[in-house]
């Protein structure tokens, strides 16, 4: 098992949006999807996922509807709204810029100064 990192504050929303953008998911599915797309590197407290989902619904970034899961359980499925899609794009851009800047800063060698 790869070493797991606590996710940075504020990034949970971004990860959820990304996970859901790949197709409608129920809560447990979101958890699995994040584990999958991060190759198990990111650890999410399971219960903490739901307040975040509720918050995103209230902000109009996700919409929820009841359906049936693969194993025939009634489950609430989340999918992106257009506002959610836009937000995901903005946040991802911002994150990438920030990550690139930090990476480049960290990679600086003495002779480059």
């Amino acid at each position: 098992m790869p070493s797991q990192a606590q996710i940075l504050p504020g990034t949970l929303d971004l990860l959820i949006l990304k996970a859901v953008s790949l197709g409608p998911l129920h809560g447990y599915g979101v958890l699995l999807r994040i584990e999958q797309i991060s190759q198990g590197a990111l650890l999410i407290e399971q219960g903490a996922l739901y307040p975040a989902l509720f918050r995103l619904v209230r902000q109009g970034l996700l919409k929820a509807s009841w359906g049936t899961s693969d194993n025939n359980r009634r489950a609430k499925f989340y999918e992106l709204t257009s506002a959610g899609r836009k937000r995901l794009r903005q946040e991802a851009d911002g994150w990438n810029r920030l990550a690139a800047a930090i990476a480049s800063a960290l990679n600086t060698q003495p002779e480059e100064i």
């Binding site: 129920h26 809560g27 447990y28 899961s69 194993n71 359980r73 009634r74 489950a75 609430k76």
Partner: peptide, 8 residues
């Protein structure tokens, strides 16, 4: 919803 999660 929370229960479904635990069951899953």
């Amino acid at each position: 919803e929370l229960r479904a999660h635990v069951q899953n």
